[in-house]
Each structure stands twice: as C-alpha cells, then as structure tokens.
Design a protein around this nucleic acid. Structure first.
Lengths: 184, 184
DNA sequence: ACCTGAACACCGTTCAAGT
DNA sequence: ACCTGAACACCGTTCAAGT
C-alpha cells in the first residue's frame, strides 16, 4: 500500500509532539514511516510545504464560536491557545509557517468576521484580528519555550500565564469596544 | 591580532542583513572572518548564544522615550519597529532568541515602567508591555516575511502596514487607558 | 590563548535505476 | 506511480595538534 500525503503530515505531526520542532527533520519523518528520505518527495514538494501542512492540520482544530461578539472572540482566542498548547512548539511552527506563505488555513477570517459584526469597518476588523493572532502566538510561543526549557532545566519562578493571556485579550477587546459602534 | 567576541557578533549581524536568517550559518560567519569554523567556538559557546547576542545588539538601538505615558509608549513601539525593519529577518530572530532564554536585553522593562507610571499595577504593566512586544514582533515578522517573499516573487496586493501597526498599538493603549488610574 | 585541519554525526534535496 | 540506493552540498560541533 503506497504512502499517502495525509500519512506523511500525520507522521510529521507526531514527531513534532514527541521531539519538538528542532527534532522534526525529513529524515526522521521518513524513518518513522520506514521509508527512504527521498520517498517523501513524491508526496510533498519540500520541508517548508510539509511544515505548513502540519500547521494547517493543527489549526483545523480551532473552534469558530458564534454569538455576542465579545464572548465569541474570547472563546476563539481561548480555543486557539488550547489547540496550540496541546502540540509542542506549535506556536513557533505556526508563526514560521505563516512566513512561508504556503498555508491554506486563514487563521484570522473568523475573528475578523465577528469584529466586523461588532461594528468595526472591514479594514479595522482585519487589523484587530491580526493583532489578536499576533498576541496569542507570541504568548503561547513564550509558554512553550518555557515548557521546552523546563524539560532539562530547573523550573524558574512561577508565573500565571492564564492571567497574562486574559489581560492581553482583554486590552485588545477593550480597544475594540471603544471603537465599535454596535456594542451588542 | 586575535579575533574578538564583538567581531564575531558584528560579522553575524552583517550576514543576517545581507543574506537573511536562513543564510546565517556558523561556517559563513567563519569564512567572512577568514577563519576556520572551529575558531568561532573560542569566542562563543554555540550558535544559539551567538544569535541571542546578535538580537541583543540590534535591540540596543531601540529608544527609551520619557514623558506622558501614551506618547512615550507609542514612540517606544515605533522605535522598536524601526530598528527591526532596518535588519532583515530580525523580528523572527528576536522571537527565536527569546525562546533560548539567553538574552541579556530585557525588552519589556522600559514600556512596563511607563505603564506602571500610568497607574497600572506592576503585574498588569508587565503583562501589557509583553502584549505590546508580541504585537510588534508579530507585525514586523509579517512585514519582513513579505519583504523576503517579494525578493523572488511578484508583489502581492498592496497593504498599508503603517495603518495596521498604529491600529494594534492604539487598541492595546485604549485598553490600558480604560484600566489605568492616572490618565496623565 | 588562539587557531588549523580534520573528523563526526547529522541535514535537505536530487536522481538514476528498479518494480 | 512509487520507492530504493546513493550521492551532493551543505550543516553545528569537537578536538588533537600546532604556535
């Protein structure tokens, strides 16, 4: 039975979760699938595209809640964070993959829609959704870098990551509320 | 005349600006200095530490403006963006180097001080400063990824990056204003 | 102390040859 | 079409040996 594209992406995702981003090499994906490295290139054009596919697969698990704009956006942000924290190093992976411009997944589409419904002009809604995404990625990358660090080093001083997360989202949404016409 | 730590960091920074982050290898730094790769390890323990030193050197150029909190924080954010945009791929470099936890530079110290003076409790001031940093890094990483892309591909649809930047900073600072006691 | 020369254990990617 | 085997052009890092 020949290898499929989905199997390659899945194997890569499994290695990411087990060994982290720095352990995710084409050769290790190949060896996990018991295949020669060159065989991967029948299913994926290069490593960048494979990483983008892994990022898309992870992001596919993010909820797209509806309802009153503020709780819905807060739930979206919380779901994004939850999905990222469930996959080691995925915040950095997603940030990196965004740079390649090879993603199919449009991460900001849903929050931008919610913010436009709140009364923000389309341009501002997209901008605010991007700002939210940057904050969540930056915050989760920091959390995951700390987790990676503490795999091999003694834990540093405890910090409440949840509080910091809610603060950042809250500040941005307060800013939105101040500018949005429709406060329902 | 023997090589110095500063020369190694400078050579690395020059290669970053010319060739980008993916072109920045220990072997290229060595060959720019007309030295064998192994020679670098007398001045730097490993590549991660070198990257962190380059990031610190770049961030040393960021202004630390004083005065009324809101214009001062806006000026800090604008200066950070300016410094990042002047060094190819530096937003991604700084984000990556932060993950190593090898930096001497405390990027959020100054804005956190300004925000505390604005009336935010110390914990919230640090959180808001981090949120600002995440936004600036994310926004600049996106700008620089686009610049890298357009080195070899036709330009995509024009977007106004300045507007997006001011929007993000404005949303966060509106949120701060809503929570800060001292509005001077 | 500082550097060379050479090696070690890896990378991503390509490609003729086989089935 | 799909994979193997083998190669190519790179990596980061280490270390005996020289000065």
């Amino acid at each position: 039975m020949p290898l499929s594209h989905a199997q390659v992406v899945d194997a890569a995702r499994a290695i990411l979760v087990r060994d982290g981003l720095e352990g995710l090499s084409m050769r290790r994906v190949a060896s996990a699938l018991e295949v020669q490295p060159g065989a991967l290139y029948h299913h994926v054009p290069d490593k960048q595209t494979l990483l983008a596919a892994v990022a898309d697969r992870i992001l596919a698990g993010v909820d797209e809640p509806l309802g009153r704009w503020r709780p819905a956006v807060e739930a979206w942000a919380a779901s994004l964070r939850e999905v990222l924290l469930a996959h080691r190093d995925s915040a950095e992976l997603v940030a990196t993959a965004r740079g390649f411009r090879l993603s199919r997944h449009d991460t900001t589409r849903h929050p931008a829609t919610l913010l436009a419904a709140a009364g923000l002009p389309p341009e501002a809604a997209r901008g605010a959704a991007s700002a939210l995404l940057y904050f969540v990625l930056g915050h989760c990358a920091e959390e995951q870098a700390r987790q990676d660090w503490e795999r091999f080093h003694p834990p540093g001083p405890a910090t409440d990551a949840d509080d910091g997360f809610e603060l950042g989202v809250g500040l941005l949404l307060d800013g939105v509320a101040a500018r949005a016409g429709n406060l329902e």
